[in-house]
């Protein structure tokens, strides 16, 4: 009997992750000969991230892509992947989540009726500002920086000496324009597609956050699968993650070209150490269990 799986997605249909999710469904349909098909609901139609995570426990959604940060509000182990400057590079992040640590993170989601099958990239978030580039933490001192409504962002930005200003995403453009805020932070595709670069001309690549995104399926569904089907699901997920990472890199390149064309001044932060040093209190406050401390050590040990 054919079963149509409901997939939740936050982004617009032509986003790298969205295309990769559709691909996941297509591979499943093909490999299981139509016994399982994926039907993806884009744009957060079925509820925002928090509510969607809750719907897993209620068996309302069968698969989804959630950012590690949002999952961290539910499963504490996941908080570790959204710590600032925790990954040295994209390669480091992939090595961590694709390996044994990825399995441990997936296990921690069991309480919330999820199994993480593969990991997408959420890109690297950096600061963009209106008046001057950021080369050292002192440059941020006293600036009003827009952050999403989450503890980790507020703590990180405040540890760097700026004023964290939680503001709805849709308000950022005018807020930059009118000087309500001095800057914000995001990955380059978002910076570009929101046209925030029209009003914030400095993009400083400090890459403070590199948060992986989990492609999860419902544990109820997972446990009902034969071993063979589980392998099919896992392969499909891996393949879709590979596609997403490729598409993301392409998308980043495209965005960077647009930013360069628009005369945005992009500067790579050469010495990240002062930024990392400033994170002491954030780590002290948020890495506060033995489980998190162990994960931190293991992540740092991955080559």
């Amino acid at each position: 009997e054919a079963r149509e799986l409901r997939g939740w997605n936050l982004h617009v249909p032509d986003y790298p992750g969205s295309i990769a999710m559709e691909k996941f469904g297509e591979i499943l349909a093909e490999k299981t000969e139509g016994r399982y098909t994926g039907s993806v609901f884009h744009n957060g139609q079925l509820g925002d991230q928090r509510f969607a995570i809750e719907q897993f426990a209620l068996d309302g959604i069968d698969f989804a892509v959630f950012s590690g940060g949002s999952l961290g509000d539910f499963a504490t182990a996941l908080q570790i992947v959204s710590m600032p400057y925790i990954f040295r590079s994209a390669e480091h992040m992939y090595a961590v989540v694709d390996g044994e640590i990825g399995e441990r993170l997936s296990d921690s989601l069991a309480d919330h009726n999820m199994v993480a099958l593969a990991w997408y990239t959420g890109g690297a978030r950096s600061f963009y500002t209106v008046s001057k580039p950021i080369n050292e933490p002192a440059d941020l001192s006293g600036m009003k920086i827009r952050v999403p409504d989450a503890e980790i962002f507020v703590s990180t930005v405040e540890a760097l000496g700026a004023n964290a200003t939680p503001l709805a995403f849709g308000e950022v453009y005018t807020a930059l324009q009118t000087g309500v805020i001095d800057g914000a932070e995001n990955n380059s595709p978002s910076f570009e597609s929101t046209r925030h670069y029209e009003v914030a001309k400095f993009y400083s690549l400090d890459e403070h956050l590199m948060v992986p995104e989990a492609l999860v399926v419902s544990k109820t569904l997972w446990d009902s699968l034969s071993e063979e089907d589980q392998q099919t699901f896992r392969d499909a997920a891996r393949e879709s993650a590979e596609l997403q990472r490729e598409l993301w890199a392409e998308r980043e390149e495209k965005s960077n070209a647009i930013l360069a064309e628009a005369g945005v001044q992009v500067n790579v932060v050469e010495d990240k150490q002062p930024f990392i040093d400033a994170m002491g209190p954030v780590y002290e406050k948020l890495v506060n269990t033995d489980e998190l401390r162990a994960l931190l050590q293991d992540i740092q040990a991955v080559e």
Binding site: G47, D48, F51, E54, Q55, L58, D59, G60, A168
Partner: peptide, 19 residues
């Protein structure tokens, strides 16, 4: 066959918008 809890979770979700 969808949990009715989701129907009411949407009730709360529909109101959880700042604007």
């Amino acid at each position: 066959g969808i949990s009715p809890a989701i129907a009411f979770q949407r009730v709360v979700g529909g109101l959880s918008i700042y604007s």
